[in-house]
């Protein structure tokens, strides 16, 4: 695939941070990666390998130290591009806003007229099964519900690229599986490209079309696994024998790298 046709394209992307000792900490890269339009890509890697840094670079939250990132052919360099939505692991609901107002926050910068805004907010709230809680405040909701609010706030912008930074990390296993089903459904309905960061191998294997495996710090891509799942799928694919094969392959690539991380002092 050529760079021009890719939805998101990373070339030689690296990131270094000033370290506490006064030197430089090489956190990431160089990374070369292309996302196809409408693809569901998961990135797995040992903790501290720079996965979240990679996501922040694509989101435009910080510029890469070297290399280029292009989204729909336009270069991203530390500015927040239109058409990208981000969902974080941490609870990012605004506690002073009702569910409705939290979701509407996603449309703050959009130019559509108020009536259309209200309608779209209501639709997304319904899509996420939050209709009964539209007037509630985040403090009244469970962790899973609050994460739905954050997803709704991202979806309402109708992003063409959705970045998920371990969005289910704080949830229990059953809720995670069910949320995974919903993400798959939303991915099919919206046709968006999804970029998922996770440390859970089973989550990556169940959700993604393609899984990129990262090395220990400085994070580089060391393996890419195509899952070949049908587009119509849900959490029940974990019963299939291929699921075990995929997770086993991921673990084989990752085991060495994870050992490095554990052996290394923080």
């Amino acid at each position: 695939m050529s760079q021009a046709s890719a939805h998101v394209s990373l070339r030689g992307v690296t990131k270094t941070f000033p370290s506490a000792a006064g030197g430089e900490l090489h956190a990431l890269g160089p990374v070369d990666l292309d996302l196809r339009r409408g693809e569901f890509l998961a990135v797995v890697g040992p903790s501290g390998c720079g996965k979240s840094t990679l996501l922040e670079l694509i989101a435009g939250l910080s510029p890469p130290t070297a290399g280029t990132i292009e989204f729909e052919g336009r270069r991203i360099a530390g500015d927040i591009p239109d058409g990208i939505g981000v969902v974080f692991q941490e609870d990012a609901c605004f506690p002073w806003l009702s569910v409705e107002a939290n979701v509407a926050f996603g449309l703050r910068k959009s130019a559509i007229e108020p009536a259309a805004k209200t309608k779209r907010v209501r639709e997304v709230i319904e899509l996420m099964g939050l209709t009964d809680f539209a007037k509630s405040y985040p403090a009244q909701l469970s962790g899973g519900m609050r994460q739905r609010v954050c997803i709704a706030r991202t979806l309402v912008k109708e992003p063409r690229l959705i970045l998920l930074d371990e969005p289910f990390g704080a949830l229990d296993q059953q809720t995670r599986l069910l949320m995974g089903d919903e993400v798959l459904k939303l991915w099919r309905q919206t046709g968006a490209t999804v970029f998922l960061i996770t440390h859970a191998l089973d989550e990556a294997a169940m959700l993604a079309d393609r899984i990129a495996v990262m090395s220990a710090r400085p994070g580089r891509l060391i393996d890419a696994v195509e899952t070949n799942w049908p587009r119509e799928r849900d959490s029940r694919i974990v019963e299939r024998p291929e699921f075990g094969v995929i997770t086993a392959r991921l673990w084989k690539s990752l085991r060495e790298e994870s050992l490095k991380t554990i052996g290394r002092a923080k």
Partner: peptide
Amino acid sequence: RPILIKTGRVHGLSATEMVRA
């Protein structure tokens, strides 16, 4: 919480909007 500021940035808020909203 820093995550709220990050969320504001992801939504493209300017410095004054960040203080206000």
